[in-house]
Structures are given as structure tokens and as C-alpha cells.
């Protein structure tokens, strides 16, 4: 079980990304050793998986192609969807993979440098897999918001400098 301070630490890291141990300790009113041992535990338990920057490539006109592929699959007896999922997520161009409820089973997100690359991923790698029954591919046109972050930020502080 995790304490409320531990959960607060996780929420803080998820929102802010990397912060120095001293800062984390100050924010949560804990000492640095406590923070360090919490972080260690999170890593060991596979809860804290890493820190990454959120980059808006649209700004510098580097447009990779992102495709969302809805995949229907036939689950395997005793193994469900896990085997085929593993066959899919091992491809490095797959950036996300989710098991879904609803009209299809797996949602595959892939990032590639051209439409052509996406097409060949679907026809050469995804569709030939035994349990894959059908695929529907959608292309992303523009990112407005990703993981809670606006891609055209409205961060300007509209308050006056000094108010009572």
C-alpha cells in the first residue's frame, strides 16, 4: 500500500516532471532521505518508469506521421490478447498499444517518417500476424492537447503585477 504522501509525490512528478530531491522534499514537507527512498521504491516496483520532455515538433515543422490503427484480433485460448500484443509492441515504430473495449480490440499507435512507411507497416508486419483479423488506419492531422498539455499554450499571466 502507498501512503498519501507517496501518492502526492507521484501526482507531483506526473504533473511537473523531474524536480530535484531538495525541491520535492520542500514541497511535500519531508526530508530528502525520505524522498530518495520513496523514489527508489517506486522504481523498484515499476511504478516510476522515467522522465521525458514533451516536445512540440509541429513548431519546427518536423512532421512525423502518426497513425492510430484499430485492430481486431482473435484471442488465443489461455493467453487472451497478451501474445499478439507482445508481437506488436516489439516493433520500435509502435509508440503506444492499448487493449480496448468496444468495436475493436487493440489500438496501435505508430510513428513513422512517411505515409508509405505506415502503409508498409500495416501490410507487411501487422496484417500478416496470425490472429489479426482486420485493421483500420487513421492519421493524426494536428495535436491540440497531449497528456494534459496544450500545444498552443495560453500561459500569459493576465493578472496585474500588484493587487491588494
Amino acid at each position: 500500500m502507498y501512503s498519501s504522501k507517496e501518492l502526492e509525490l507521484l501526482e507531483l512528478l506526473e504533473e511537473k516532471g523531474y524536480l530535484e530531491t531538495k525541491m520535492l522534499a520542500d514541497l511535500l514537507a519531508l526530508d530528502e532521505e525520505t524522498i530518495e527512498s520513496m523514489l527508489e521504491k517506486f522504481k523498484q516496483d515499476g511504478i516510476l518508469l522515467g522522465f521525458r520532455a514533451m516536445v512540440n515538433w509541429q513548431k519546427i515543422n518536423r512532421h512525423d506521421v502518426t497513425a492510430f490503427i484499430d485492430v481486431k484480433v482473435a484471442p488465443k485460448r489461455g493467453r487472451g490478447f497478451d501474445d499478439v500484443a507482445e508481437r506488436i509492441y516489439r516493433f520500435p515504430e509502435v509508440t503506444a498499444l492499448y487493449l480496448m473495449s468496444g468495436a475493436y480490440d487493440l489500438q496501435v499507435v505508430i510513428q513513422a517518417s512517411s505515409l508509405q512507411d505506415v502503409a508498409s507497416f500495416v501490410s507487411d508486419k501487422l496484417s500478416p500476424l496470425d490472429s489479426v483479423l482486420s485493421t483500420t488506419t487513421h492519421f493524426k492531422l494536428k495535436t491540440y492537447k497531449h497528456d494534459g498539455i496544450l500545444f498552443t499554450p495560453q500561459t500569459e499571466d493576465k493578472r496585474l503585477n500588484i493587487t491588494p
Partner: peptide
């Protein structure tokens, strides 16, 4: 380039 800690309202 003022960092304001003078504001009496939420951010």
C-alpha cells in the same frame, strides 16, 4: 522582467 510576488489573487 519583474517577478511579481505582489499579487493578492490566485494564479
Amino acid at each position: 522582467n519583474v517577478v511579481s510576488l505582489g499579487v493578492g489573487e490566485p494564479d
